[in-house]
Design a protein around this nucleic acid. Structure first.
Length: 120
DNA sequence: CATCGAACCAACC
DNA sequence: GGTTGGTTCGATG
């Protein structure tokens, strides 16, 4: 299901910029110490997970808008193209209290589903 | 669990 | 039209 946008009286399919704004809004809901996955965002936005990566890359306000809290659904850290690279991403997450099982993987219980954030 | 190939889809060239 | 990602999935060991 593609994301739709209501704009001066009619409905159209969301463009990449619309999705970027929507993604940013969702990112701001993720609490410190928690992460979500590209997949979850993808489901919420109705796009391919790889496109979510592209969106995160377009976020020029990292790490204020916390795209570093988006990781792979299998627990691996994923990428980070903003300054500092993946090492900085890991550092941020550790600093925020995200628990790592080991160097590669994040604990299951550090994940929060977008449903928990957008409902109630 | 780890690895591998294929599917994904909009951007970019 | 082919390649490329901040990925995922299913199959296989």
């Amino acid at each position: 299901m593609p994301l739709l946008v209501y704009e001066n009286g009619n409905v159209r399919k969301a463009g990449i910029i619309d999705m970027l704004e929507a993604a940013k809004a969702l990112l701001l809901l993720i609490p410190i110490g928690k992460v979500t996955s590209y997949k979850e965002l993808a489901l919420a936005l109705g796009v391919n997970p790889r496109l979510v990566g592209k969106l995160m890359k377009m976020n020029d306000e990292a790490p204020i808008i916390p795209c570093h809290r988006v990781v792979r659904s299998n627990g691996e850290i994923g990428g980070y193209s903003a300054v500092g690279g993946v090492d900085f991403k890991r550092k941020l997450l550790e600093l925020e209290g995200v628990k790592f099982k080991n160097k590669r993987k994040i604990n299951r219980n550090s994940f929060i589903s977008l449903r928990e954030l957008t409902i109630n």
